[in-house]
Amino acid sequence: MPKFWDEYHIPATLDDALGLLARYDGRARVIGGGTDLLLDLKEEHYSGARPHYAALIDVTRIAGANEIREDADAGWIVIGCAVTHAQVVASSLVQARATALHEASGVVAGAQIRNMGTVVGNVAHALPAADSAVALAVLGAEVQVRSKQSTVNSEQWRPIASLYLGPGKSAVDSTREIISAIRFRPTGANEGSAFARIMRPQGIALPILGMAARVKLAIRNSQFAIDDVAISAGPVAPTLFRAARTEEFLRGKVLDDATLEQAARVLLSEAQPRTSAHRATREYRVELLPTMLREVMTRAVKRAK
């Protein structure tokens, strides 16, 4: 393999990291676990491109960045840019209050990759079907993007969906900016979330379809009704997808078979799955959408009860 980078820096503070990026002025690139980046570089090389960076800036040892913490007053769980999938899976806080993310991180690749890859890196990679991103989408996730040059208040948070410009195309410029943290709304009383996905046994290691739901229940006429709901799926659009119309349809309803069937029809009207070569046909994804909707909704509702 050719040399893809010349220097490797492991800054201890976010400021140092931002300073290094500024110093390299676009010629350096942020690396987290590297499990996406390094394979992408290789793939680019084989496809004829000659990727090269003056330096990689490793953000996994930034002080405090490997923490999962709850900001109970404001109602957020915050995960730093060094937090790995394995940490998320092991966190009892995430398991209890963001079950969809727990489930999604648990099926990312294999054990070794989960020990290396970070959740933030997964988001930075901007694949609309990335497991953790699909889960984060229903948890109302927001990200903090930092850079030296930024005129934006560094404390500002942006909705996660705003980073997704297209498949693998992120609004974050990893040669100048760092996603320092992600925060999301944990589930509370009468709330539950779930994630499910279908893989293809052959070929590409990307999901055929992943889906997540978050549900809040309320008692109406002595029955559990859906007070609020969030549904995301991928890949059914070039960017992170929230099923707004399906969510709207479900609000206030009691979840029974008939409602689910109708909701599935709404979902099919707004999701736009495509055929991807060697991965899945559009028709198959269309067949799976109702099945998976039932799966994640049933599980999320059960957890909310």
Partner: peptide, 25 residues
């Protein structure tokens, strides 16, 4: 390419695939 696991070693007790693990990490 982080697929086969033959290069698995433990770093601080956690299994990683050392073929895509930058040494300086």
């Amino acid at each position: 390419e982080a697929e086969c696991g033959a290069c698995t070693v433990l770093v601080n007790g956690a299994p990683v695939v050392s073929c895509v693990f930058p040494a300086l990490k």
